[in-house]
């Protein structure tokens, strides 16, 4: 029997000709695709900003950065000599046309949101310690807040053409709309220069110009307010995606109570009306920026009522009790990162 096996072995060995010969190595040209996505990153408005634009040259990116820096110089609340600084300290100021436009729009949005957004809440924010980076947070007492709230009223900000004035003791801050407006002006600049595809990340405000170079939607993540990760991703084109959340800046007092930086202008205290994060998706950065703050202040019910009355934007709400609410148009644009973490629901049309 073993003889037969041996014969078989020999036969097979002859058949297969002892292994495969090494194949000759092929020469293949390495071709790199022309990827014209250019980007720049810079520090402005106390945050990191990045501009990624398809087809832009270095000169255009430099122009974009210069535009942001010039806006900061004009609109900063803390920079001496800025238009807003002058207005706050001298009670009146002559604004540039774009600053006047921004203030006008901001005041209109304060009215539209019935004071949920209020540009004059700045002294209250400062009293809580949120305007400085040194972390000197404190809880102001009721008397102090009452005194400060006397001067919180956007209706007393006067704007006549490019002339602005505020009453004695009032200070305004355009921080809730500046980054959104900056995004709009950058978008216009890029568009005028022929850029059809770009992504701006202005310290967490994401604004997209057109769609991606390959024609697909941009995928914009939304931060999870309750952790380090993501809530999910939105597929968008030509939209601004702006999020406001209590997680951005906050502190806890000795008793363990959490205070965050988004103030309710009516109470002078951090807005706790059921929401921990609001993401607004819309065509205009300024509008989205203003609404993300205003809707956060309004709380779940009023935010939904506001959306039903306007319908010119979309939103993702995360509530304190663990629900994730989407407007219908976002239902198919939003992919949750972890479908089980939040109870997801689509907001009914009426």
């Amino acid at each position: 029997m073993y003889k037969r096996l041996a014969a078989l072995a020999l036969g097979l060995a002859l058949l297969c000709g002892c292994g495969a010969a090494a194949q000759p190595q092929k020469e293949t040209e390495t071709v790199q695709a022309a990827q014209e996505m250019r980007s720049t990153e810079f520090f402005a408005m106390d945050t990191v900003m990045s501009v990624r634009a398809c087809g832009a040259d270095e000169a255009l990116l430099a122009q974009a950065e210069a535009l942001v820096l010039s806006l900061e110089e004009e609109l900063s609340t803390t920079r001496e000599g800025s238009a807003v600084y002058t207005l706050d300290h001298e009670g009146h100021a002559e604004l540039s046309e774009r600053a006047a436009y921004l203030l006008g729009r901001a005041l209109a949005l304060c009215a539209e949101t019935d004071g949920a957004l209020d540009v004059s809440v700045y002294p209250v924010v400062r009293a809580w310690g949120f305007t400085t980076a040194d972390g000197s947070y404190r809880v102001p007492d009721a008397a102090e807040l009452d005194a400060l709230l006397q001067n919180v009223d956007y209706t007393r900000v006067l704007l006549d053409g490019t002339e602005a004035s505020v009453p004695e003791g009032m200070e305004i801050d355009l921080g809730a709309v500046t980054k959104g407006y900056t995004g709009d002006l950058l978008t216009a600049l890029l568009r005028e220069s022929g850029v059809e595809s770009a992504l701006l990340d202005l310290g967490g405000n994401v604004q997209t110009v057109g769609c991606k170079p390959d024609g697909s939607n941009w995928r914009v993540g939304v931060k999870d307010p309750a952790g380090e990760g993501l809530l999910g991703a939105l597929a968008v084109a030509d939209k601004a995606v702006v999020t406001s959340g209590g997680y951005e800046r906050y502190f806890t007092d000795d008793a363990g109570t959490l205070y965050w930086h988004i103030m309710d202008p009516r109470s002078g205290c951090p807005a706790r009306n059921g929401l921990i994060s609001v993401t607004v998706v819309g065509d205009e950065g300024l509008y989205c920026d203003a609404l993300s703050t205003a809707l956060f202040v309004m709380g779940t019910e009023d935010a939904i009522a506001f959306w039903r009355a306007h319908r010119d934007f979309d939103m993702v709400l995360v509530t304190e009790d663990g629900r994730l609410l989407l407007t219908p148009a976002l239902a198919e644009r939003f992919t949750p990162a972890d479908a089980l973490r939040y109870e997801t629901a689509v907001i009914a049309d009426a």
């Binding site: 293949t28 695709a33 990827q35 991606k212 170079p213 390959d214």
Partner: peptide
């Protein structure tokens, strides 16, 4: 998603051999 034109590159293995990787849009 950012690839607009197809291209390829060669990955060589130090002990001999290589793989040619082809990249196309998507």
């Amino acid at each position: 998603s950012a690839v607009r034109e197809a291209y390829s590159f060669v990955v060589t293995w130090p002990d001999g051999g290589s793989n040619t990787v082809l990249v196309e849009p998507g």
